[in-house]
Simulated scan of single mutants.
Amino acid sequence: MKLSFNEATTLKNSNLEKDLELCEKLGYDYIEIRTEDKLPEYLEHHSIEDLADYFRTHHIKPLALNALVFFNNRDEKGHEEIIHEFKDMLEKGKKIGIQYIVAVPLVTEEKILKKDIKDSCVKVLTELSDFAKPYGIKIAVEFIGHPQCTVNTFSQGYDIIQAVDRDNVGLVLDCFHFHGMGSSLEDLRKADGSKIFILHIDDTEDFPIGFLTDEDRVWPGQGVIDLERILTTLKEIGYSGVVSVELFRPEYYQLDAEETIKTAKETTLTVVSQYFEIETAGVK
């Protein structure tokens, strides 16, 4: 298993250029690039070709563009915007060599029937799958463990990707989101490990199910998520993808970016290496 850094972890105390420099220095293999803020900021002073050149000449590689946000149950205008954004992500992603585009389901206070959520997700993901196929880029759907997300449990997300039934459509399993709405380990145990494209590692403070927010995340191994059982189950079902550390902790944004990225790696390796062999490039 190889190690990735998700840029949310340094959202307020770094930028893409600095994240790349530090992740290269500290021996990460991959990076998930934030498309809502850090990539646009980078492109104000650089080109996408500059970014491609960086990856060609350094060890660290781009894992994913994160994220295509709120892709399902949109009105006609909203759907057109999603398609336009996705096509742009495919073009940029092809130039820099990404493997995945992370797709996040709609978060809304509107009550939508589960059947209508599933129908919309399947329809849109099938359309996106067709667009992505010539590019060789896969779509990693990330269920969000919060009551207002339209897809908020592992079982619901897995049911949707099974219905889509495309080789280039799978899931992100974020341990925080898995815990956040009480997803079932039995459901995970029944899953095909090859349909989980990315593992997000994190931990959380001990709040009740349904009340957790991203800011409650803490370093892996320093919270209440049953990471042992999640990781053991992933190993049992043959998961062999990348582990990507993703935190949104306000206190961690007050740290120096290098300290944040270094501690994220150390805490991740301490937990994950008990269950998977981790191959990293080492510290320069």
Rank of each mutant, 00 (worst) to 15 (best):
L3N: 02
L3H: 02
F5L: 13
E7N: 01
T9G: 05
E17M: 09
C23K: 00
L26Y: 02
D29C: 09
Y30V: 10
I31E: 09
I33T: 06
R34V: 14
E36Q: 15
E36K: 15
D37T: 15
D37P: 03
K38Y: 12
K38I: 10
P40Y: 00
E41H: 09
E41T: 13
E41R: 10
H45W: 11
E49K: 12
Y54T: 11
H58D: 12
I60C: 09
I60V: 13
K61H: 11
P62F: 00
L63V: 11
A64Q: 05
L65N: 01
A67M: 05
V69S: 13
D75P: 07
K77I: 15
G78R: 00
H79P: 05
E80D: 12
E80W: 05
E81H: 10
I82W: 04
I83P: 10
H84V: 15
E85M: 14
D88C: 11
D88I: 14
M89A: 12
K92H: 01
K92N: 02
K94V: 13
K95P: 00
Y100D: 05
I101R: 01
V102F: 02
P105W: 01
T108F: 08
T108Y: 03
E109H: 15
E109R: 09
E110T: 14
E110Q: 13
I112Q: 01
L113N: 11
K114S: 12
K115N: 10
K115E: 14
I117E: 10
D119E: 15
D119Q: 12
C121G: 06
K123T: 14
L125P: 03
E127L: 02
L128V: 02
S129V: 06
S129M: 01
D130N: 11
F131L: 14
F131V: 10
A132G: 07
P134E: 10
I137R: 00
F143I: 08
I144K: 06
I144Q: 12
G145K: 05
H146M: 15
P147M: 09
Q148D: 15
T150Q: 07
V151S: 03
T153F: 01
T153Q: 03
F154H: 01
F154K: 00
S155W: 04
G157P: 07
I160L: 08
A163D: 15
V164T: 05
D165G: 07
D167G: 13
G170T: 02
G170D: 03
L171S: 03
L171Q: 03
V172K: 00
V172L: 04
L185W: 04
K190N: 06
D192F: 01
I196E: 05
I198V: 07
L199K: 00
I201R: 00
I201T: 07
D203I: 06
D203T: 01
F207K: 15
I209L: 13
D214G: 11
V218A: 08
V218D: 08
G221R: 02
G223T: 05
E228V: 14
R229T: 15
R229F: 13
I230M: 10
L231Q: 04
T232C: 15
T233H: 03
T233I: 11
Y239Q: 09
G241W: 04
V242E: 07
V245F: 03
E246N: 02
F248G: 03
E251C: 08
D256T: 08
T267P: 07
T267M: 09
T270G: 13
V271A: 04
V272K: 05
S273P: 10
Q274W: 12
Q274N: 15
F276H: 09
E277R: 04
I278S: 05
E279R: 07
G282C: 08
G282P: 07
